[in-house]
């Protein structure tokens, strides 16, 4: 048993302050265990969101000593205890109360993402994918939507005004998953450049550093997307190659028309 002071943010949209809770920590405990003990013994009205306690639901994200962590996966013995352990809500999102924030920004950005639009099925009416094509997107599907990558991204963390036109790292991995999907026909590159703010990312890799699933967000999603946007918008040689070889996905509008009326597009080609 060790003595530790937990300094937890208490407050809501009207304001708040840190409150110290001296407590005992047992071997093997995680931050969420200690927060629950404080709830049980000292502050029954302390609000904190949690669910699985196994690092898979992504609910208990909070900022511990200034960096986002899952409270259920942060062992107390990894934190310096000679000073208070500081726990604050995720800074990027509006606070509801104490450690609970409103993360609906992320769901709205997800709604704006053009969905998977499969191409025509094979002659037998089914879709087939080879294992090597399936494997590429598996990394992105590990995302537990803890939104810590969105929280740490300075584009919206430090600049509230950018939320209007910046999807953020969590959504960029979803964009990459769909853009690199061999069966998908939608082309989201122009949308990424014009309205989803891919160019706002300056590759500082904080999203990758905080990801609890160790997804290489920057190297495997954001940078490949940036290169695809270069293909589409900034590279005259790539443009010429597409025109000469006629090897490209349909444009976004063509893909949309194709889904509603394939004959119209075929006739216009």
């Amino acid at each position: 048993m060790a003595e530790v002071v937990m300094r937890i943010w208490r407050g809501d949209s009207e304001g708040g302050e840190f409150q110290d809770f001296p407590t005992q920590v047992s071997e093997g405990e995680v931050v969420l265990d200690v927060v629950h003990r404080i709830q049980a013994e000292d502050a029954p009205d302390l609000a904190c969101r949690w669910n699985c306690k196994a690092g898979k639901c992504g609910s208990c994200s909070a900022e511990i000593n200034g960096l986002p962590h899952l409270m259920c996966m942060t062992r107390m013995d990894t934190l310096p205890t000679e000073e208070p352990v500081v726990i604050a809500p995720m800074k990027t999102f509006p606070i509801i109360r104490d450690l609970v924030t409103d993360v609906s920004f992320n769901y709205e950005m997800a709604r704006r993402l053009p969905p998977f639009a499969p191409k025509e099925p094979g002659p037998d009416g089914t879709y087939r994918m080879q294992q090597i094509d399936v494997e590429r997107g598996q990394e992105f599907r590990k995302c537990i939507e803890c939104f810590m990558c969105q929280d740490i991204c300075h584009v919206i963390r430090d600049h509230e005004e950018n939320k209007e036109h910046y999807a953020g790292p969590r959504l960029f991995i979803r964009y990459m998953e769909l853009e690199s999907h061999p069966l998908d026909t939608n082309d989201r590159r122009e949308l990424l450049r014009e309205e989803m703010g891919l160019g706002y990312c300056n590759i500082t890799k904080c999203c990758t550093e905080v990801c609890p699933e160790h997804i290489k967000i920057t190297d495997n999603a954001i940078i490949p997307l940036k290169e695809r946007v270069v293909d589409a918008s900034y590279d005259p040689v790539a443009w010429l190659g597409r025109k000469i070889l006629r090897r490209t996905k349909k444009t976004a509008t063509e893909a949309a028309n194709y889904r509603t009326d394939p004959k119209t597009v075929k006739a216009s080609q």
Partner: peptide, 27 residues
Amino acid sequence: STQEGIRPAPVPLVLGGARGGPRVRTL
């Protein structure tokens, strides 16, 4: 935008709401 055709109807983005935590450069 040429994305108009494939984009679902936009849902208004609610950005309001005060942020929590202290107004310090870093913790």
